[in-house]
Simulated scan of single mutants.
Amino acid sequence: MVSENPNETSLLPVRHPQQDLFICDIADCVLKNDIASMEHPVFSLSKKPDLSVREYVNGDKRLTVTPSVKGMATIYDKDILIFAISQLMAAKNRGDPISCELRLSARSFLVFANRHTGGGDYEQLEAALDRLTGTRLKTSIRTGGEKQESWFGLVESAYVKRFEHGGGSEGRVQELRITLSDWLFNAVTANEVLSMHPDYFRLRKPIERRLYEIARKHCGVQDEWRVGLRLLYKKTGARSPIKQFRFLLKNLQDQQHLPDYKIAIEADGENVSFARRSEVACPPRTNFLHVADER
């Protein structure tokens, strides 16, 4: 679904360099992601069904993620939410009314997320909705100034509409209708979102996407952000051994294909820094190095 060759370390190709006019309007929306799920490990990084309950504690912030029998929502399933949030923010910025209930074109989503548009790619949307609606959260992490203390789903309900008559598309998913959780919708209404580089969808590995999210959230408009390697490992939600995590960071340091940021493992081997690439525009401000104070 994501990588034609999992051994490749470069970015995925741009699969839709030219789009029809209808798709163009939608794909031109700036990628937006909610800050809370960028900072905290809400989504599974596994490509296999993840049935484990996750507990994450960071200071006074607590998060419990419980999957359904279909498995935990993955970071690739999150693409649907990024698409939804991007559409909502575009409408909000135009001054249009918005709602937590959305109707999304299946093909528009696949193009937006730089995916193939074959029959199997449409069918995978149903599996993604299974995981998104089945995964339940309990958290003290605020969105929109509201503290959630009850169980809720990332997507509270979903509906799939299929083509009904011929044309070679009969039975194929045509439209997605989803109802976002209050937790996510509050983030949109409170502007608790960040823009992301479109090459996010070209990253091949789940951990690369997660590292980009974390860098985007914490580095922001700073020139550099420094964090302990073990804390970074915790923030990603990775389940692989930390030795393997170090190896992956070393590969990323050698390849340097994360959008917007360069990554470096410091000489002590226990800290990692993310530095903004010089070609990334940011508002003028005093340069400083922020050291994560979490342990």
Rank of each mutant, 00 (worst) to 15 (best):
G118A: 13
E39T: 08
R277G: 12
V57F: 09
A267C: 05
L184H: 06
D223W: 00
G71A: 09
F109L: 15
A158D: 07
D268Y: 11
Y56L: 10
D34A: 07
A190Q: 02
A27W: 02
G120I: 08
S169M: 15
G168A: 10
E123C: 07
P13W: 07
W225D: 01
L102Y: 06
E170V: 11
E192F: 04
R131E: 10
G120E: 13
V173N: 06
G167E: 14
T143K: 01
G228Y: 11
Q87S: 14
A187M: 01
D28E: 14
R216S: 13
K205G: 02
S195K: 09
A215W: 00
R202I: 07
R131L: 11
G120Y: 05
L21M: 12
K235C: 05
E213W: 01
R246P: 01
D293T: 14
Y212A: 13
A264M: 09
F152P: 08
E208G: 11
E170D: 08
G59S: 10
R54I: 12
S140F: 11
W225C: 01
R230Q: 09
N251F: 04
Y233L: 05
R239N: 13
V69F: 08
S99Y: 08
K250R: 15
A128W: 01
P13F: 09
T66S: 14
K61S: 10
L252A: 08
K234C: 03
I82L: 12
R295T: 10
S44A: 12
T133E: 14
T139F: 03
L194V: 08
V272D: 00
K235M: 15
G153N: 05
R239M: 13
S3K: 10
L248D: 06
Q124D: 14
G134D: 04
K243A: 15
D79R: 04
A106G: 05
D77E: 08
I35F: 08
D50R: 04
N186I: 00
T236Q: 03
T143S: 12
L88D: 02
N114I: 07
S108Q: 10
H257D: 14
L11F: 08
A127H: 07
Y200T: 05
A292H: 08
G134I: 02
I214V: 12
Q174Y: 11
S37I: 05
W151D: 15
V173D: 02
G237V: 05
N93P: 00
M196H: 06
R142F: 06
L180F: 07
R172G: 02
Q174S: 14
K138T: 14
E294W: 15
S37W: 01
T139R: 02
S108G: 15
R295I: 12
P284R: 06
V272K: 00
L51P: 00
G118M: 10
R239E: 15
I98N: 05
F247G: 12
A158I: 07
G220C: 05
A106L: 05
S52T: 14
D130Q: 14
S140L: 11
G167R: 15
A187R: 00
V65F: 01
E8R: 14
V272L: 01
T189K: 04
G145R: 03
I75F: 01
